[in-house]
Design a protein around this nucleic acid. Structure first.
Lengths: 217, 217
DNA sequence: TTGCAAAATGAGTGATTACTCACTCTATAT
DNA sequence: ATATAGAGTGAGTAATCACTCATTTTGCAA
């Protein structure tokens, strides 16, 4: 349990984008708030400017169009979703000391994605909402997921299969099962019922256990 | 396997709303298409009217506001989502002949919701999208789910627990697990990747099996 | 203090929005 | 044939939209 540094490093998500002026940051923050509340189409640039404490013209000085403002929020988010998995030898790192169990992996992964979601719920809400109406974003998202994340997780799952830790289901199905379970939990926790009283530690623990029992040999 | 009439009856979702004039139907159909493609805010009443082959005034003769048009689509959907579970003695019906297994129940439920989703994907997309921006709809939805669906499924799961068919996890967690798995599959299948080549029968089978292994004692 | 470029401004632009209303068309009853 | 009611129309309305641009303010080097 103590020696999980192998993934924690890879999964780090704490880098922040800099090189934005003070006003630019205020505009982006306001945009996140308004987009999150009303959706991209329902949000008006005048409201964003007002909330940012800035003239409407200033918004367009820094972002050529309203859509560019959306992209400046959504694109880095996509990058951060993918980031943990693009470490070149992701799979090997996990197995480096031939010590990693499927359980340990699940644990670290879920806890990490939990913190990720906790910190970025409004942005991820925008991301999920708008992906449906902007085919280029959706395309880019699916592309990034399949070429970076899926390929590597695929290898990983097959290694755990080889080690006889999990069942012989189609790897596709296993990945889908893991994904919907984790993502479903996070969406329920942070987007649908954020105001419920959640015993987070217990929910995470149970989710891991259920997944484990469903998949282990 | 042959004698599952007990649920199939209860789960029927094939009633259609009538008492709508020909033009009203065309307007609603057009609205479903445009709302589904562009979202509520992004859709214009003029486009809906055009697509329905109708003057814009006609839209407002039948639906006082744009939002009323949205509600005329979304409200019956909510009713149909809940419908299967509001049969007064839902739980007892399932156990009527003391013959139902958890597996049979899962099988019928998933297949039924699959057909439901298949038939109504665009409307359900609208439903899921707009629930985020219309608190009253969300409230009504959560209310209906907790007072009708959740209560009954709760009883059901506990009965299966009593019969030693499933584990002693918190019933809440079991329900969430079942829900995210099934809903996650349906969203992946019909909303995110509808154009993939899906072996539906196999996916359904595997999903049931995985859920079963995760939950059975 | 002055000079000056970059940043910020907000009134102005044409397009589009949801919605209205005075009017016409159509179907049925007599 | 005529009257009547309601369905259908589409030009018109004020409001709001994303975006522009001539002008002012600001920060800083000389």
């Amino acid at each position: 349990m103590t020696d999980e540094q192998w993934i924690k490093d890879i999964l780090s998500t704490d880098d922040e984008d800099v090189k934005l002026s003070e006003k630019q940051i205020k505009i982006v923050e306001a945009a996140i708030q308004v987009f999150s509340e009303k959706g991209f189409s329902g949000a008006s640039t005048s409201e964003i400017a007002k909330k940012a404490g800035v003239a409407e013209g200033t918004v367009f000085r820094h972002f050529k169009t309203k859509k560019e403002l959306l992209l400046s929020i959504v694109t880095p988010t996509l990058a951060k979703i993918v980031a943990p998995f693009i470490a070149k030898d992701f799979v090997n790192s996990v197995f480096k000391d031939d010590y990693a169990s499927f359980e340990d992996f699940l644990k670290v992964l879920i806890k990490n994605r939990f913190e990720f979601m906790k910190k970025r719920a409004p942005v991820i809400k925008i991301f999920l909402q708008e992906i449906a109406f902007h085919p280029e974003i959706k395309e880019e998202y699916i592309d990034a997921l399949t070429t970076h994340v899926k390929v590597r997780v695929f290898q990983l799952v097959e290694r755990f299969k080889d080690k006889n830790e999990i069942k012989e289901y189609p790897t596709e199905t296993i990945i889908r099962f893991m994904t919907t379970t984790v993502v479903g939990f996070l969406i329920a926790r942070f987007l649908i019922l954020p105001n419920n009283e959640w015993d987070d530690d217990k929910e995470i623990e149970d989710t891991i256990e259920l997944l484990l029992y469903g998949l282990k040999k």
